[in-house]
């Protein structure tokens, strides 16, 4: 056994860890070289992408303020020069007036399109409105309007007589811009009670059923429809039509529509005409096998 005096240092043997493990490309197999090459390429690509992302992020961050101010300045430099409108009945002047666009100095970018859309759609005649900016200086306004199927003769607060229009959804509105001839040709709606709501009127229920009758009459028997003056919902769900040929014609809603009842009415009118009876008092079309007809001379 070797006994040694205590010393501060002792010689250290060479360990396997002293063997140099540096890899030289020449000493690598082709597989390993490819492996190392692709690994380094992958790392390089990741590093480049990361650096690029950081650089772009930093640039965007630094330029945010500049971009914001540039947009504001650009906005100031984009005055509204043109308004393009698209509508059925309402004319361009009404739209400009309603939206208060007849002023100078309006800025296209500062217009509140949401508020303008809401303002348009608050008017009952307008079903929906779309507004869009068309850079650099144009505002595009597209309006889809309601189609009236009947009119209502009512009195306003001053007891003046006014004509209101009703569409198939039962929405009641004061029609603007309609051709008076077209309005006159619409049948008047009767037997209903108008209720005011938020400056307008509550929708009339059942108008979808009335619309079916009027549409079928207009397409299947236009000569009859032209003579219809009043459509009454007083006997609802039956619909009473007052026309030149019959003082009252009573229709009953059926799943198949009103085709059969219109045909029966047409036949009765033709039959009476052939016997020189131009107007009857009442035709009840609600019975399936018979159609009671009351002649005017019998009515007291």
């Amino acid at each position: 056994m070797a006994t040694k005096k205590p010393t501060k240092t002792a010689r250290k043997s060479k360990s396997w860890k002293d063997i140099d493990q540096d890899v030289r490309a020449k000493s690598m197999s082709s597989t390993a070289f490819k492996r190392m090459f692709f690994a380094r390429c992958r790392k390089s690509v990741i590093a480049i992408v990361a650096i690029a992302a950081i650089a772009v992020g930093a640039k965007l961050f630094l330029e945010t303020e500049d971009v914001s101010s540039a947009l504001t300045q650009a906005g100031r430099a984009l005055p509204l020069k043109m308004v393009e409108t698209e509508s059925d009945v309402l004319d361009r002047e009404w739209i400009l007036h309603h939206l208060d666009l007849n002023r100078d100095g309006l800025n296209l970018l500062t217009l509140d399109l949401g508020e303008m859309k809401q303002s348009l759609e608050s008017y009952s005649q307008i079903r929906s409105a779309e507004l869009a900016r068309q850079l650099p200086d144009t505002l595009f306004v597209s309006i889809q309007e309601r189609e009236p199927i009947a009119k209502i003769i009512a009195s306003d607060v001053d007891r003046a007589r006014i004509t209101l229009l009703v569409d198939q959804e039962g929405v009641v509105y004061e029609g603007i811009g309609y051709d008076s001839k077209m309005v006159r040709s619409l049948p008047s709606l009767d037997g209903i009670r108008l209720k005011r709501k938020d400056g307008g009127f509550e929708p009339i229920s059942g108008m979808d059923v009335v619309e079916v009758l009027l549409t079928e009459a207009r397409t299947l028997a236009p000569h009859l429809y032209r003579s219809w003056k009043v459509v009454s919902m007083e006997a609802w769900p039956n619909i009473v039509v007052k026309s030149d040929f019959a003082k009252e014609a009573v229709f009953e809603p059926t799943p198949g529509g009103y085709r059969r009842q219109l045909a029966e009415l047409d036949y009765i009118i033709d039959y009476n005409k052939s016997r020189s009876v131009n107007r009857v008092a009442r035709v009840d079309l609600t019975l399936k096998s018979q159609v009671p007809v009351t002649r005017a001379s019998f009515v007291q």
């Binding site: 063997i19 540096d22 000493s27 690598m28 197999s29 597989t31 390993a32 070289f33 492996r35 190392m36």
Partner: peptide
């Protein structure tokens, strides 16, 4: 043997 152990290590090093 340093050389022989080195050879074995270098084979592994050769695969990076």
């Amino acid at each position: 043997n340093a050389r022989k152990i080195g050879d074995a290590i270098h084979i592994i090093n050769g695969f990076n």
